[in-house]
Nucleic acid binder design. Structure first.
Length: 467
RNA sequence: GACCCCAUCGUCUAGAGGCCUAGGACGUCACCCUUUCACGGUGAAGACACGGGUUCGACUCCCGUUGGGGUCGCCA
C-alpha cells in the first residue's frame, strides 16, 4: 500500500476562511489517520492578488486550529518554470498548440455564445491550423488539445462516479501569452511532483477535476484520487457571505472561540461517525475517513458552534482556560491582572466557566471584580435596588459585619438565618446583594462573590448601595 | 441558459430494501434542581420535497418534476 499524501492549497488573497479551514482539517485528518503526509502549498501565481500578509494569515490560521503540515510549504510561483516545461513538452508532443486569438476575439465568442444561450466554448479555431498562418506580432497562448469525443469520468470518493462529456470541455489555456502557466496546469504538475495521492478539496473544483484529469493523462502522470467535499453555506442556504460567518479564523479567535471547539464543529459539518457529537482530535484521527463525508452542502450555524464552544470552555482545565482568557480579560476589564487579581479570577473561574459561551463572555464575568466603587448598576440591577431593598441591605450589612470568618459558607449561613428571622425569601436578599455587589442581575453564585470580594470591599459596596 | 452535483425534524446529521412506531445533537417549549444566570436531569413538539415506477416490502434502488448549489476567465 502506497503512502497517503494529501495537501491543502490555498491562494493567499485574503484570510483563511472557514471553508478553507475545513478543507485543511479534512486533508490533515485523512493523512494523519493513514499515517501519511500532509503538505501545504501556497498558490501564489496570481501576482496581483497574492500578498505576503495573506500567506502569514494562512499559516497563523492553521496553527491556531492546531493543524500542522509536513515539510516546508511549497510556493507555487517558484515552480513556474517547471510548469512551463511540462507545457512545452506537450507542445512538442502535439498535445497542445499555439492559439493566436486576441482577447477581443474571445470576448466576441463569449458574447455570441451568451446571446445564443450556449455555454462559452473556445471553438478550436487554431487547433489544427498551420502555424504559418500566425499573425505577425501576436504573442500566442498555449492551449491544451483536449479530447473532443468520449467522456472523462471522475471516480470521486465523495460524489461517486461523475461523468463529463468531453465535448463539454474546451481547449483550455495552459500558458498565457507571456509564457506563464495557468492554474489547472500548475495544480496538476505540482500535485504530481509532490506525490499527492488524494486531492480533497471543495466541490467548486469538480469541473476542474475533469480538465485536470485530461491533463494528467496527456502529461503521462498517474491520476490521483479525488474527494470533492460539499461547500459550506450560510444560515439561509445561500452562498456563505461574511455576515454568515465566512470570516477568517482570526475573527473566530477574536470572538472567543476555542480551537478545539472549532475543530469539532467543522468536523461534524459534513462528516459523521454515528451519533457521536463531542469528538476529540485524537478520536477524530482514529475515526476519520472519506466514506462518511456527506454529499450535500451544510449550513453554517453559529448557535451550534456556541453550544460546542460552551462545552469546551466548561471542560478546559482552569489554568489552561485562564491562559486562553487572559487577552480577553485585559480587553474587557481594562487591566492586566496581577498575581493577586489572578487568584481572584481563579476563585470564581469554576463558576464563571459554566456560564460562558465564548471567551468574551467569560472575561465579562470577571468585570465586577475590578469595578471601581461606587458600582454603577445596569438598568435591570437598578430594579432590585428600590427603597425596600436598600432597607434590607442595611440589615444585611449589620448581619454580615458580625461574620467573623469570611467564607462563602459562613456568609451564606448568616444571610439564610436572616431570611428566616425576617420572614423573607432568600431571593429577596440575594438579588439586592447581587445588584449592589456586581451591578448586574446575573453573576456567579452570590456567596462566592462575597468571598472573592472580601469583607472590606463587600461591606463598602453594600454601604454605597444602601445610600 | 448549458453542464455537473445535492435533497431526512428550523439546523447538523444517523440510516447502505424489512432492525423505522425514522435515532442522536443544537435550537424551541414544559417540568425538576435553584439565591440570579447557566450547568445538569426528565419530558414534549418537530423530518424522509413531490409524482411515478421496481419489489412481497421502500427513507433506502430507477425515472421524472420541483427546489437548492457549483462551474462555465490569458483568477485561483
Amino acid at each position: 500500500m502506497t503512502k497517503i499524501v494529501t495537501r491543502f492549497a490555498p491562494s493567499p488573497t485574503g484570510y483563511l476562511h472557514i471553508g478553507g479551514a475545513r478543507t485543511a482539517l479534512f486533508n490533515w485528518l485523512f493523512s494523519r489517520h493513514h499515517g501519511g503526509t500532509f503538505l501545504l502549498r501556497i498558490e501564489d501565481t496570481d501576482r496581483e492578488r497574492s500578498t505576503e500578509d495573506a500567506v502569514q494569515k494562512i499559516f497563523q490560521g492553521l496553527k491556531w486550529l492546531g493543524i500542522d503540515w509536513d515539510g516546508e510549504p511549497v510556493m507555487q510561483f517558484s515552480r513556474m518554470n517547471r510548469h512551463a516545461e511540462v507545457a512545452h513538452k506537450m507542445l512538442a508532443e502535439g498535445k497542445a498548440y499555439h492559439c493566436y486569438c486576441s482577447p477581443e476575439e474571445l470576448e466576441e465568442m463569449r458574447n455570441k455564445a451568451k446571446a445564443e444561450g450556449r455555454p462559452m466554448r473556445y471553438d478550436g479555431r487554431w487547433r489544427d491550423r498551420d502555424p504559418k498562418d500566425a499573425p505577425a506580432g501576436v504573442k500566442p497562448v498555449v492551449r491544451f488539445k483536449a479530447p473532443q469525443i468520449g467522456s472523462t469520468v471522475i471516480n470521486d470518493h465523495v460524489q461517486g462516479d461523475v461523468t463529463f462529456q468531453n465535448e463539454q470541455l474546451d481547449d483550455l489555456i495552459i500558458l498565457r501569452s507571456d509564457g506563464t502557466p495557468t492554474y489547472n496546469l500548475s495544480v496538476v504538475v505540482d500535485d504530481h511532483d509532490m506525490g499527492v495521492t488524494h486531492i480533497i478539496r471543495g466541490d467548486d473544483h469538480l469541473t476542474n477535476a475533469a480538465r485536470q484529469t485530461q491533463l494528467y493523462i496527456a502529461a503521462g502522470f498517474a491520476v490521483p484520487d479525488f474527494a470533492h467535499i460539499p461547500l459550506i453555506h450560510g444560515s439561509d442556504g445561500a452562498k456563505l457571505s461574511k455576515r454568515h460567518g465566512a470570516l477568517g479564523t482570526e475573527a473566530y479567535a477574536d470572538m472567543g472561540y476555542l480551537p478545539a471547539a472549532m475543530r469539532n464543529y467543522l468536523l461534524r459539518l459534513g462528516w459523521s461517525h454515528g451519533d457521536e457529537e463531542i469528538i476529540s482530535t485524537q478520536q477524530a484521527i482514529e475515526w476519520f475517513g472519506l466514506d462518511h463525508v456527506g454529499r450535500s452542502p451544510a449550513r453554517f450555524d453559529f448557535v451550534k458552534l456556541n453550544n460546542l464552544n460552551g462545552h469546551y470552555i466548561r471542560h478546559t482545565p482552569d489554568d489552561e482556560l485562564l491562559t486562553a482568557a487572559l487577552p480577553f480579560i485585559e480587553k474587557k476589564c481594562g487591566l492586566q491582572p496581577n498575581q493577586a487579581q489572578q487568584m481572584q479570577i481563579k476563585a470564581i473561574l469554576p463558576a464563571a466557566k459554566e456560564r460562558a459561551k465564548d471567551l468574551n463572555e467569560l472575561a465579562e464575568a470577571f468585570a465586577f471584580l475590578f469595578a471601581v466603587r461606587p458600582i454603577a448598576p445596569d438598568a435591570a440591577a437598578q430594579k432590585h435596588l428600590d427603597d425596600a431593598a436598600k432597607a434590607r441591605i442595611k440589615t444585611m450589612i449589620e448581619t454580615l459585619t458580625g461574620v467573623s470568618d469570611w467564607t462563602a459558607a459562613n456568609t451564606e449561613a448568616a444571610i439564610r438565618a436572616l431570611s428566616e428571622t425576617q420572614q423573607v425569601k432568600l431571593g429577596q436578599l440575594a438579588q439586592p446583594l447581587r445588584a449592589a455587589l456586581t451591578g448586574k442581575t446575573v453573576s456567579p453564585p452570590i456567596f462566592d462573590v462575597l468571598a472573592v470580594l472580601g469583607r472590606e470591599e463587600t461591606l463598602a459596596r453594600l454601604a454605597d448601595a444602601a445610600g
